[in-house]
């Protein structure tokens, strides 16, 4: 029966405390390392894309557009729509459809102006 076992005393609790502190610290270190890698990866990709654009024999811009995967708000093309309004619209669509935002694909948001 638990609580009555001699194994509860001393070493188990001490082990648990050490494991808890160590584990939490390592999760932090791991995630910070991952964050650094992602930042470096992102920057190197941006740099590579810039170099590609600056090169004389550039590929048509539409190819670059196609090269980005659709799916996140950062890739939505906005036509005369402020960021804030776009975020609001996307949140409303996500709410009304009952689907998380990351499962929805917004390609562009355009204001339809009355003539």
């Amino acid at each position: 029966m638990f609580l009555a076992s001699p194994a509860v005393e001393g070493i188990s609790k001490a082990d648990a405390l050490v494991a808890a502190i160590l584990g939490y610290a390592v999760v932090f270190v791991g995630l910070i390392l991952l964050m650094i890698v992602v930042i470096i990866l992102g920057k190197s990709m941006v740099k590579a894309a810039k170099t590609k654009k600056e090169a004389p024999a550039t590929v048509a811009p539409t190819v670059t557009d196609d090269a980005t995967a659709p799916g996140s708000a950062g890739e939505v093309k906005l036509y005369d729509v402020p960021d804030r309004t776009a975020a609001m619209l996307m949140a409303i669509v996500a709410e009304k459809t009952g689907r998380p935002l990351n499962e929805l694909r917004f390609k562009s948001i355009k204001e339809v102006k009355e003539v």
């Binding site: 090269a67 995967a69 708000a73 890739e75």
Partner: peptide, 10 residues
């Protein structure tokens, strides 16, 4: 929110 473009390669 400053949504940056994330390349497909990334």
């Amino acid at each position: 929110y400053e949504g940056k473009d994330v390349s497909r390669t990334t």
